[in-house]
Design a protein around this nucleic acid. Structure first.
Lengths: 195, 195
DNA sequence: ATATATATTGAACATGTGTGCAATAAAAAT
DNA sequence: ATTTTTATTGCACACATGTTCAATATATAT
């Protein structure tokens, strides 16, 4: 009676749309791709599109969620933790840099000024969850609104580096980026206030 | 021979469109307002719209630029500068909080997830120019890519507070926000590294 | 005041959007 | 293998988009 897994037809439809989108993205920017165009490319009836999505962005978003999953998983690997918080933070951030570099083509789209904030927030929330863990490990603060603001401050600071990286056309190397980060962290040194 | 000022007809058209947009924004979200709808409200021919703009966002953006001008001007007033950089930074940030609070209705739109990044970047670039001045005053660094990253890091950190404020429905008072900021700045204390 | 320049209008056209519905195809359940 | 369920299709409709064009209205320049 109950369906155990998703209908094969739905999976096939979504796969077609995702492949069509990736094909079109090699030719033109995301914002110029219409639903009608995407459906023609995917050989899918336009009405079928509306059964699963409301706009082209949702197809892209679904793919982006897979990509962000890759970032999440890299955080679940155990890694060497030193006594110095700053070194953990550094290691964490370098992971993010590598991730963004790996999927550069996507992040170029995400940071495009025509694109809706939703993707930025998706990245923000993902990084924020890591930052939350990292900060809560090292601070003996109760959950408080105060802490929410601190976490969002630190998270968006890191995304600020990514925005700058984007504006430099991703030409800054990860080593160099890492050097900048060390300098910034040593200026705004949180180490000295650790528990 | 040369036109000294803009044609009155153009000014009238743009005024009508701006007023129509503000009227419609009281009824429905920006993303749902179509060009046709806006032109009907403004009693402007749709073709005329395309002579000046390409999308509804450009009308909103033009108005937002006026609002951001208000923020810029507040930075040109002379204000009390102490020897402590942290206090200058605080004063600067409180100005931003007041500005955002004053134009809350607009910033609610700007931080909406459906809205394109362009407005976020407009705010980012404005705050960044103040941050650049503030940081360059206190650091003896040459212009360098390193500095670009530092400035974007600090700027976006502040915008992180605004994002968190937005998510709390702008219910946190400015005093409270200021308290959070002091705490954050004292944790990430840049004071001790000042020139 | 008149001539000149140009902004605005209205109409038309192909295409895109969002929705609804009956017919059909294809998967899941028995 | 047959029945049942449901995803997909094709078509239709009203409205939105982006562009072009000649006719008109209204600033600007003299």
């Amino acid at each position: 009676m109950k369906k155990l897994k998703q209908d094969l037809r739905i999976i096939k439809t979504k796969d077609s749309l995702r492949h069509a989108l990736l094909a079109l993205l090699k030719q033109k920017p995301l914002e110029t791709i219409t639903i009608a165009e995407l459906c023609r490319e995917a050989t899918i009836n336009r009405g079928t599109f509306y059964l699963h999505y409301k706009e082209v962005h949702e197809v892209f978003r679904e793919y982006l969620e897979v990509i962000v999953e890759d970032l999440k998983q890299s955080y679940e690997e155990p890694y060497y933790k030193t006594n110095y918080h700053i070194q953990n933070l550094e290691a964490d951030m370098i992971k993010i840099f590598h991730h963004v570099k790996k999927y550069k083509d996507f992040y170029q789209i995400i940071f495009d000024e025509r694109i809706p904030m939703m993707y930025y927030y998706l990245l923000f929330d993902t990084v924020r969850s890591f930052m939350k863990e990292s900060i809560e490990e090292h601070f003996e603060l109760d959950h408080s609104i105060q802490l929410d603001y601190l976490i969002s401050y630190q998270t968006n600071a890191i995304l600020g580096i990514l925005i700058e990286w984007h504006r430099h056309g991703y030409e800054t190397s990860i080593q160099e980026l890492n050097q900048h980060l060390i300098t910034i962290l040593s200026i705004n040194s949180p180490v000295r206030k650790m528990q």
